[in-house]
Design a protein around this nucleic acid. Structure first.
Lengths: 189, 189
DNA sequence: GAATTTACTTCAAAAATTGAAGCAAATTTC
DNA sequence: GAAATTTGCTTCAATTTTTGAAGTAAATTC
């Protein structure tokens, strides 16, 4: 199977050969198909785009859930932070590591979460600069409700062994891209 | 292999069983590992988060490239729109479909792209409401430069047969999530 | 030819992001 | 043990992005 030879047809610079392999979702954009009419190709650009779109949909779901729950003082991004915190009790720095957020950004979120009483700040004896953070009862309840809601969405996605593997593959792949792109940004090339 | 029984350990509502299977990138956050200490689990929340982070890194790369190229009148989001347009000549509506953008949003981007002379608007005889859009020479050159740049980043990601398949799996999985989450948002549950 | 629909665009307000600066506690250096 | 530096955040101001409502003009339907 010679794939190198197929590249010239790619709409974007670098592409990846795809075996169509009968899938259930025949609603796929099939990027590249129109260009060469024969073989489907995906690029990092397209992967980046689908990530963005899927993220947006996910935020949309969270927002819908929040609205349903009558929560209107925080948005999906803040809810996401709550979910990241989970049952843990951590400092802002640890949260930063966990979530790969930007410092000033998480401060902004935490302020809103604190204002809405979704989190508690516990002054630490050891280091008075960094308070520890954990969910308040209100925050915990919201998280539980969101997780509960997630379960219902999940039923729409079949949960066979193959699906699990695909999900895992997607996760690992994206994680790798995150690292590579992150390093590329920091150290060039 | 009974996986249903593993769910109770999930930190978030719904999880997916993961076979660690020796991978090269042992920098993985290993979500869930701390909770049960034995098996790694990933959830849709975590997948959504890694999508967001990877998207952010990608935008970062685009921004870096743009800066390198001396482009400072458009950002990564606008550059992405240029890449979506590619060689096509389409109406705003078609672009909307392609990119799954929000109407007012793409108007905003297109205005900036038009102001920067990255795109041409060609009045359509058939329907005077919708002009057709395509890259200007300047826009085309920028796209070419960006695609060229993408190639170098690519080398950091090995391109074996397995990698291709993983990339494809990731794409299909995210696309499916996009659809399901999108439908869920529109029609509830 | 009036009413409705389509295909956008514009606007204003809100939310999110960024980078620089600031600050106080902790640590290191002298 | 005082001064300088570092750490671990927070605050601020400026941008950028997103959203929703309203508007407009052309096309279509009634």
């Amino acid at each position: 199977m010679n794939h190198r030879i197929l590249y010239p047809f790619a709409d974007f610079g670098d592409a990846v050969v795809v075996e169509p392999e009968g899938d259930t979702t025949r609603n796929t954009p099939d990027p590249g198909r129109d260009q060469d009419g024969d073989r489907s190709l995906i690029t990092y650009f397209e992967l980046a785009r689908v990530m963005e779109r899927a993220s947006r949909r996910f935020s949309g779901l969270l927002r819908t859930e929040l609205t349903k729950l009558g929560v209107d003082d925080i948005g999906s991004a803040q809810a996401m932070v709550l979910l990241v915190i989970g049952e843990a009790e951590l400092s802002v720095g640890e949260l930063l590591d966990r979530g790969h957020y930007v410092g000033s950004n998480i401060s902004y979120y935490l302020k809103q979460l604190a204002d809405g009483d979704y989190i508690d700040r516990i002054a630490s004896q050891r280091d008075k600069r960094s308070a520890r953070i954990r969910l308040s009862e209100k925050g915990r309840q919201l998280c539980t409700a969101l997780r509960e809601a997630a379960k219902s969405y999940e039923r729409a996605l079949s949960h066979g062994e193959q699906d699990r593997r695909n999900l895992e593959t997607a996760f690992q792949t994206l994680h790798r891209l995150e690292l590579v792109w992150g390093n590329a940004a920091r150290y060039g090339i």
